[in-house]
Design a protein around this nucleic acid. Structure first.
Lengths: 227, 227
DNA sequence: TAGATTGTTAATCGATTAACAATC
DNA sequence: TAGATTGTTAATCGATTAACAATC
């Protein structure tokens, strides 16, 4: 029986699928609000309501975090929150610097939700000297020349890249040379980085393409019936 | 032979995968810059460089748009751009209204790249009366009470939802009652909508979870070798 | 105990990759 | 023609779903 139990935890060794990782934050959000309501246990069935998921998918995802539930009761919410946070890496704060204080960059600097997501933006940088010194949501914009020292003394590992496509590649290299190990890339450019640097690309165009295609297609589908 | 040719175009009828749709914008971006360089043809091999893709994936994706290439030459860039834009629905402007002029909303209002992506935000709205009347990136913020009439007279089909989670659901319903057919949802909430309304959810937490997990895991992987 | 819910194994589905014939 | 590149069919892979035994 003890052997059985360990097997669930061992799943952690399987390479976790990106699909699973992307679903975990939604569970977390729901779990927190259930916890605020004073509930103690939750079933995979309830959690599945967070999107349009099958309960068995939820159980598979949760198993990946090493958590074990109780038949008839479900999962202990408190335990589950801790397990998911630990699994993602949100149980400790990750410090990040933001490079590129334009529209999007400024918005991210003011994004309070990051507090809930284990991310703390501790420094803002920009190439543009005219922006240097300004306060954006309480953070002073610093010149790029101070990046390397800042990253080292503050022990920052993550960088948010929010500059135009043209200079994104050079800036990213500079960030990595400064000690950054992971880049959240909001520029519409593919970054070629050494293997030990993690890059996560974020591109609004992707979601918009899916949305607009579905909208045009839905319209097409109904008018096609006229044939 | 003519029959063979038509079969490629016929692929359009297959339900297109979301994965494919998400890749198309990146091809488009590269195609445009190749066109600016004056090139006329491109191979699937070159396009594959846009991410870390296999050329055969690119050919499959392009086939979904109905385009047909030429052996040895590749694809005519001009034709290909038109085909992708048409397929996604970016060959005609989609008009959108933005609801929620906070940090993120303001940033999106100033996001010039949407011009390239067939999206034109023609109106900005907010619940907060104090924001009404302000100009954000040239657009005046309007009160929610004017939404329905605006949507109808301007023939707007798309809505960008950038308000806090708490009121997102109610606001979304109101948008749909006002005539909106598609919602680009930036609030961390699942929206339950009638089947004929398309919802595309955008959640930064997903990408961040993937990034942070990979970063922690990479670190764990190297330190694990010490055992 | 009976019943609800978990965890696991097997089946299905769809997307990616491999292999290769067609063709300019 | 020879060779590069396309388009297609078959094989592989991985994720989702179905089925069900385990268990509180």
């Amino acid at each position: 029986m003890a052997k059985k139990r360990r097997s669930a935890a061992r799943q952690t060794r399987h390479k976790t699928s990106v699909a699973c990782l992307r679903r975990l934050p939604a569970y977390l959000q729901m779990l927190r609000s259930l916890q605020n309501e004073g509930r103690e246990y939750v079933s995979s069935n309830v959690l599945a309501g967070v999107h349009h998921l099958e309960p068995v998918i939820v159980r598979k995802d949760l198993a990946a975090t090493g958590i074990v539930g109780t038949p008839r009761l479900g999962f202990r919410i408190k335990e589950l929150i801790a397990a998911i946070e630990h699994f993602i890496g949100w149980d400790h704060r990750t410090k990040g610097v933001l490079v590129g204080c334009g529209n999007l960059g400024s918005a991210l600097l003011g994004h309070r939700r990051f507090n809930t997501l284990g991310l703390e933006i501790v420094g803002a940088f920009d190439h543009d000297e005219r922006k240097v010194g300004r306060l954006i949501h309480g953070l002073p914009v610093m010149p790029m020349t101070k990046l390397a020292k800042f990253v080292r003394t503050r022990n920052v590992t993550l960088g948010l890249l929010t500059i135009p496509a043209s200079s994104a590649r050079d800036t990213a290299s500079y960030m990595v040379r400064s000690g950054i190990r992971g880049i959240w890339n909001f520029a519409p450019v593919k970054l070629d980085m050494p293997d030990d640097v993690i890059v996560q690309k974020e591109d609004l165009a992707e979601g918009l393409a899916v949305l607009v295609h579905h909208m045009s297609h839905k319209a097409a589908a109904s008018s096609r019936n006229l044939n």
